[in-house]
Amino acid sequence: MLKTLSTLEFGETGRVTEIRASRHELNCMGLRTGKKLKMITRQPIKGPVVVLIDEVEIAMGLDLAAQVTVNIE
């Protein structure tokens, strides 16, 4: 099932299938297509959204998270 990262529930895991924002922005933090991630925190309104990838926490704004598509397994 595909979801945007901004709608993932706490504790939910999935694999990144598409990044519509500037890739550079997220790639340099270690978030890229194909990576598995887990939702840690999702604050409302502007974020932050914090996900765990390879045991590294990555924080971003809600806007950016809305541009990332994740396949829930």
Binding site: R15, T17, E18, I19, R23, L26, N27, R32, T33, G34
Partner: peptide
């Protein structure tokens, strides 16, 4: 390469979105 998602079109890729 990631096991599950091949990364087309870029050769020795350092992270295609």
């Amino acid at each position: 390469r990631d096991e599950t998602v091949p990364c087309p079109g870029c050769g020795g890729c350092r992270g295609c979105g």
